[in-house]
Simulated scan of single mutants.
Amino acid sequence: MSRSRTASAPASGTASIRDVAELAGVSVGTVSNVLNRPDIVRPATVERVHAAIKELGFVRNDAARQLRAGRSTTIGLVVLDVRNPFFTDVARGAEDEAAHDGLSVVMANSDESAEREASHLDYFETQRVLGMLISPIGDLGDRLERLRAAGTPVVLVDRTAGNRSLSSVAVDDVEGGRLAAQHVLGLGRRRLAFVGGPHDLDQMRDRLAGARAAADGVKGASVEGIATAGLGFEDGRRAAKALLGRPASQRPDALLAGNDLVAIGALQVLMGEGGLRVPEDVAIVGYDDIDFASAAVVPLSSVRQPRELIGETAVQILREEAEDPSLEPRQVVFKPELVVRDSTVGRGAQG
């Protein structure tokens, strides 16, 4: 016999599915069907169950439900630096794609710390997430392969898998570095510096390699690699201050930055403290083409990556692997695009 609707109800948020069933005068199984398969329940019963849910303030425990089902609706995303708008845009693309299937993305920031990265992976593993997207600091191949073997799909973001044992979504960074260097070399610049790091990041190593490949065979051309501790605005400022300490003849006439934040930091110091003219004294090319690039005091030439598309594609692959673990890993590599602005050709010279 169902209890009267005038009976006292549990405090909001503490009601159980049994309380809902009792108030609605139905079985627990019927309530479960209303929550999960309402199409098989009579409309009048669905309406009565929802009225009971509203009156009791019932909140379904998705975490417990997912644990019982052995399948989560959460995707873990570990990025190198959450302050970098590149990763914010990647996360937005991932979230938009995940939302199509009722999935959610939880982003964690490793801050380029191996310890924090490991901690985030531990947490996501204990939470039994649907899968993980990660832009790793170093070589995590063994651990990530173990996760995949245990049934947790892993997709590398902004990084390729060297042995193709994991799926990945990235941009051809060697080509990106080549495009940037080829552009300034074509403008007659010969003393190039690649500023960004640390150089043990695959992305930085590949971009520097691409720049050096472009300079090979160009008479008088050289590419100096200047490593930075990180890829933030202040890293660019510190590198630029060091360059200002050199004699003018030993400074680069073109600076290729590891990303746009480094480029903007260097731009401010070189023009402000150094009094240099950009691009007349030094041409600057960034990487990523974040929104800030076009809004810099001198609009920044930059190598554009399809940031949101990277996130979208990574989620698509992860979802496919979650549905069919037998799928072979896929490597998706997008081509970068050089966007030319005033920091290399000067105002009004692009046309």
Rank of each mutant, 00 (worst) to 15 (best):
R3F: 04
A11R: 13
T14N: 09
A15Y: 08
L23S: 05
V26R: 00
V28R: 10
V28M: 13
T30L: 06
V31D: 15
V31F: 03
R37G: 00
P43N: 06
T45H: 00
T45K: 00
E55R: 14
N61H: 12
D62F: 15
A63H: 12
Q66A: 14
R68M: 13
G70F: 01
L77M: 06
N84K: 03
P85T: 02
F87R: 00
V90M: 01
R92Y: 01
G93A: 00
A98D: 10
H100Q: 13
A108V: 10
N109L: 02
Y123C: 00
V129A: 01
L130M: 07
L133P: 13
L133I: 05
P136S: 03
R143M: 04
L147I: 01
L147F: 15
P153K: 00
G162K: 09
G162Y: 04
A170C: 06
G176L: 14
G176I: 14
R178Q: 09
L192T: 13
A193Y: 04
G197E: 06
H199A: 11
D200C: 07
D206A: 15
A209N: 04
G210R: 04
A211V: 03
A211W: 03
V218F: 11
V218C: 08
G225I: 02
G230D: 15
G230F: 12
G232F: 02
F233P: 00
G245C: 09
Q250I: 02
L256C: 09
A257C: 09
N259R: 10
A263Q: 01
G265N: 02
L267Y: 07
V278N: 10
I284N: 01
S301L: 09
E308P: 08
T313S: 12
A322T: 10
E328M: 10
E328K: 01
P329N: 02
V333I: 15
P336G: 05
E337K: 10
D342K: 02
T344N: 09
